[in-house]
Amino acid sequence: MGWVWKSLNSSIGKKFVMAVTGVALMLFLVIHLAGNMSLYGGKDAFNNYVGLLEHIKPFIRVIEVILGLVFAFHIFNGIRLWIQNKQARPLPYSVNGSRKNTTVFSRTAFITGSIVFIFLVIHLQSIWYVFNFSGVEEDLYTLTTDWMRVGWYAALYFVAILLLGFHLNHGFQSAFQTFGWNNSKYFPFIKKFGTFFALVITIGFGSIPVYFFLLGGK
């Protein structure tokens, strides 16, 4: 199995890991978003959905562990790539011309990813950890919506989701490129679809703090 490890450690291998874990995380986002949409159905609808997940708790725990590993790989690899890439150009240019030849989304993938990561830690602590492990007997709907009504939290949530959108807009088409699925016939469509996907995720998640904080949703 040495060859697997070696291959994944090559520059293309590392990219491959980024892409595979990225795609897995995108799938998670879709499922998470679908669940979150039930927030708009009110307290009962959402809590019913949560109850459903409670039924298959052991399975969810396994998924959570896998998800955790996927995250870890994505982040660990991302940091490793970032460090190596910085080392590949010890002295930067005095004039930065990257604005002229790249998009803001691809240029800032590491920064947007980092901010999303910080948000993720806060988000997990405040909702997932509190709900599952802190012993507080609050239902998840109340817990979630209460947080959404806290100004700084709603703002952080919104900004993080916006940056996640940036991250996805790069990541979606980037994954296809890394897998080698780039062809002049369908790649333009993939790029557009990636942007569409990023928009759906951003609007979907981003609407939640807007609804509960700004529009006073119950």
Binding site: K15, A88, N101, Q177, G180
Partner: peptide, 28 residues
Amino acid sequence: FGNCSNTYACEAECPKGVSIKNIARMNR
């Protein structure tokens, strides 16, 4: 050399316009 992060600056600056499709082919 660093690792590719698919920003495509290379293609934009290539004097001969060599396409990033080639990178995809190499990945594959």
